[in-house]
Design a protein around this nucleic acid. Structure first.
Length: 320
RNA sequence: GGACGGGUGGGUGAGUGGCUAAAACCAGCAGACUGUAAAUCUGCCGCUCCUUGCGGGCUACGGAGGUUCGAAUCCUCCCCCGUCCA
């Protein structure tokens, strides 16, 4: 449904790929050449003050290209896919008025899907309900909630693994607050993005090379003062259980800082966690429809050229 | 030179005669995922064959022999590692 509206409308470029694949660099390159602006689609970069570890592009490296959807909330706030969608739609409307090409650099598959395909009309999260459910789970064991869900929504229970507490809670939440099954809520449809001719470019560097970049990027983040950033966050009173402190690297390094223990073990953990994260991203993006995959990093000149062709013409490099 | 302890699948490591291709954990690979998504969860993980079955074959617990219907597990010799005694 998305991008297939009767009149092709404005163009929209999406660059997606695993972490450290060079999405940001490619985005800036395309923006410069095509009079575009960047919409970051990353669930971690929406948090203010968590800059280095979330790999935000520092203003000094943005080459004058506006970067939207970054630094939207404070660390103790919660952010959701629905909120991302609302904000992104605002930015898109705004760029349309200025006749700028929107370029989305996407690392968070769920957020991108929320924007492109929409979300069902489901209730927002309810902290009170969730807290009650979490208490019950703690009391009766992890599988208890699954049985609870099965009682009112067999279909959802069949789809969700008994130990996937997070998804079970969400399902119970929808069932309870919407008053109908999750399946019914989802089947009621969702409204995707329309009025855009979407070009999706995927970065797919060789696995080994990607892993090497991940390791190298960690070093440069440290060199850029990641530790100092964390120290400042701690000093300014950001709670340890704040959402962004759960992001890869932040929790481990905070523990090093406060526990005074060595970092060599933490470094290995962080690099490994990042590799696993990249794998999950790859899995998610693999089934993304209408992709133009490029097998290199976003700062590779050959990739830049191919991406430019796709962004301009919407043709696969092989067909040109 | 002698006395003990130990050598197990990519790693750590359990396993003392059959239920063991070998626990568990890690790593790796694959997958799911419509408001926590850098999250959460699932599967596979010696090789191989097919009529894909709680199927067949082969290889595997340092090496070589042996005992036994049957050995990672018991015996003999050898090699290596650690600790201790000379």
């Amino acid at each position: 449904m998305s991008g297939l509206s009767p009149e092709p409308g404005a163009r929209l470029v999406v660059i997606l790929g695993p972490t450290a694949s060079g999405k940001s660099a490619l985005g800036i390159t395309l923006a410069e050449r095509l009079a575009g602006e960047i919409l970051v689609c990353d669930s971690t970069q929406v948090y203010r003050h968590f800059d280095i570890g979330t790999a935000k592009v520092p203003p000094s490296e943005q080459r004058g290209i506006p970067h939207h959807l970054v630094d939207l909330v404070e660390p103790q706030e919660l952010f959701t896919a629905g909120e991302y969608r609302r904000r992104a739609l605002e930015v898109l409307a705004n760029l349309r008025g200025k006749a700028k090409l929107p370029i989305i650099t996407a690392g968070t598959g769920l957020y991108l899907r929320a924007l492109l395909e929409g979300l069902a009309d489901a209730p927002e999260r309810s902290e009170e309900l969730r807290e009650r459910l979490r208490q019950k789970a703690k009391l009766h064991g992890p599988v208890y909630l699954h049985r609870l869900l099965a009682r009112t929504d067999k279909e959802a229970a069949a789809r969700i693994a008994p130990r996937d507490t997070q998804k079970i809670i969400r399902a119970i939440e929808i069932r309870t607050l919407a008053g109908k099954s999750v399946g019914d809520v989802h089947r009621s449809g969702r409204e995707g993005l329309s009025g855009y001719d979407v070009k999706k470019i995927g970065l797919s560097p060789p696995r080994g090379a990607l892993y090497a970049r991940i390791d190298a990027r960690f070093d440069s983040m440290i060199a850029a003062g990641w530790m100092e950033e964390i120290r400042k966050l701690v000093d300014s009173g950001v709670a340890a259980n704040a959402k962004p402190f759960q992001f890869i690297g932040y929790s481990e390094l905070r523990a090093c800082l406060e526990g005074g223990r060595g970092t060599t073990e933490a470094i290995k953990q962080i690099q490994q966690a990042t590799r696993r994260f990249a794998k999950r991203q790859i899995t998610w993006f693999r089934k993304e429809p209408d992709m133009h995959w490029l097998s290199g990093f976003g700062d590779d000149p050959a990739v830049e050229e191919a991406a430019l062709r796709i962004a301009r013409l919407g043709q696969a490099p092989s067909s040109s």
